[in-house]
Amino acid sequence: MNSVDPTFATSIDFYVILASILFVIGAFGVLIRRNMIVLLMCIELMLNAVNLLLVAFSTYYGKGDAQIFVFFIIVVAAAEATIGLSILIMAYRNNKATDAGLFKNLNG
């Protein structure tokens, strides 16, 4: 078992609860909001909840590898936001709206 930072050992649960609340807010946002730009923001919120959780665990175990993982997540999130926004612009040109509910051509 890894060595655990004693000053941090009792409070790790609070970080997990906070990150979980942020994550759930983001997930609910993705499920109920219709505006696609807000959807992108909600996904970013979920990813940042994960970042917070990883940093907390990294301090808890006294190891740095989770913090490096956070940098990877930030980079990938930036790439994903870029792609997402460009897809959104393309969809906007076809549809003249950013409402996810308007995409009803594919079903069955």
Partner: peptide, 14 residues
């Protein structure tokens, strides 16, 4: 593309 992107990004976050 929109559908795949949003569901895919959601799955990535999970």
């Amino acid at each position: 593309s929109i559908k795949y992107f949003f569901t895919g990004a959601f799955a990535t976050a999970i």
